[in-house]
């Protein structure tokens, strides 16, 4: 880029400076590599341990090559002990359901805050800020009593309901709507476009990248959420992945069955990781173009 061109222009003592630059590059890259590997350590450990037999884990914790390749047996035992298919189904239903509901609720609300002026607007916006400060976890007991009172204890809807209004979504989308140039809106109105239609046809596509960025965070959050689903469900048929994983881990850990626990971890995490690797370019791009402010 232009910066590089400037470098060469300013370069007074040719070869020496170049050598310095190469040395710097090597050092920086080496550090980066080490840091990356350190960060990857837990993931590597998960994968390696899932391939090990129990005694292997206990006796040779640092061994990279397992003495016996036990991944398939471990996985079979993991699948035998709990209905992971049910957990997957529940988790997907909850995550997607929550996301769809969140979008249906927050986009109109954000649009309203951005485009209309109405009585008590600040008051209602306060609702949103209040929500930002207090996560559902902090309100565990009261929300439990409410959900229970609605007869939704031990249901997927019960898990989903408190989360379907997202303060972050409203704040982000409102900001996005505010950035749409006035000229666009005015010309649409001149063409006879009503508010609702405007929101659907023009507004949403314009802020698409922010919607995507938000959707990703919401899905990941619901996939991994542990505490609330644990409290609000009881039967195996309604369990989500995070809770199933935690329970499995509690049982397996007390018998030191780390190979099984890590195999289960892979089972739970694989789709997310795969999706992440696949979508990571899009992910970064969506954050960039959204210019979260």
């Amino acid at each position: 880029m232009s910066a590089k061109a400037t470098n060469v222009d300013w370069d007074k003592s040719g070869a020496a400076a170049k050598r310095k630059k190469i040395a710097a590059t090597v050092i920086v890259n080496a550090i980066i590599l080490v840091v990356s590997l350190l960060f990857l350590l837990p993931l590597v450990w998960i994968i390696i341990t899932s391939m090990k037999d129990q005694m292997d884990v206990l006796k040779q914790p640092l061994a990279i090559i397992p003495s016996e390749f036990m991944f398939v047996e471990n996985m079979k035992e993991v699948l035998r002990r709990a209905p992971w298919g049910v957990f997957y189904k529940n988790t997907i239903i909850v995550a997607v359901g929550v996301l769809v509901a969140q979008l249906c609720i927050s986009i109109p609300a954000a649009y309203a805050f951005a485009s209309f002026k109405f009585k008590f607007m600040s008051f209602f916006y306060l609702f949103v800020l209040a929500r930002l400060l207090v996560s559902p976890e902090s309100l565990l007991l009261p929300n439990y009593l409410t959900i229970n009172g609605l007869n939704l204890y031990n249901t997927l809807l019960g898990i989903a309901l408190p989360s379907i209004a997202s303060a972050i979504a409203i704040i982000i989308f409102r900001g996005a709507f505010l950035e749409i140039p006035a000229a666009l809106k005015d010309s649409a109105r001149i063409d006879g476009c009503g508010d609702f239609r405007y929101m659907l046809v023009i507004g949403i596509p314009t802020i698409k990248s922010r919607i995507i960025a938000f959707s990703i965070t919401s899905l990941v959050y619901q996939w991994d959420n542990y505490f609330w689903p644990m409290v609000i469900t009881e039967s195996v048929q309604k369990r989500t992945l995070a809770v199933g994983m935690a329970y499995f881990g509690i049982q397996a850990e007390s018998a030191s069955e780390w190979g099984l626990t890590m195999a289960a971890a892979i089972l739970v995490v694989l789709p997310l990781l795969v999706a992440f690797v696949f979508f990571q370019r899009q992910l970064v791009d969506s954050f960039v173009t959204s210019g979260i402010k």
């Binding site: 710097a24 840091v35 990356s36 837990p42 991994d224 971890a265």
Partner: peptide, 27 residues
């Protein structure tokens, strides 16, 4: 631009976010 391992670096820094907290805790 100096860094060669950019993608690896990005992946390794970001993937913990995606792990469920129960898994991370246990590991």
């Amino acid at each position: 631009n100096m860094v060669k391992f950019r993608t690896l670096f990005r992946l390794s820094a970001f993937y913990p976010y995606v792990l469920p907290i129960a898994v991370a805790a246990m590991v």
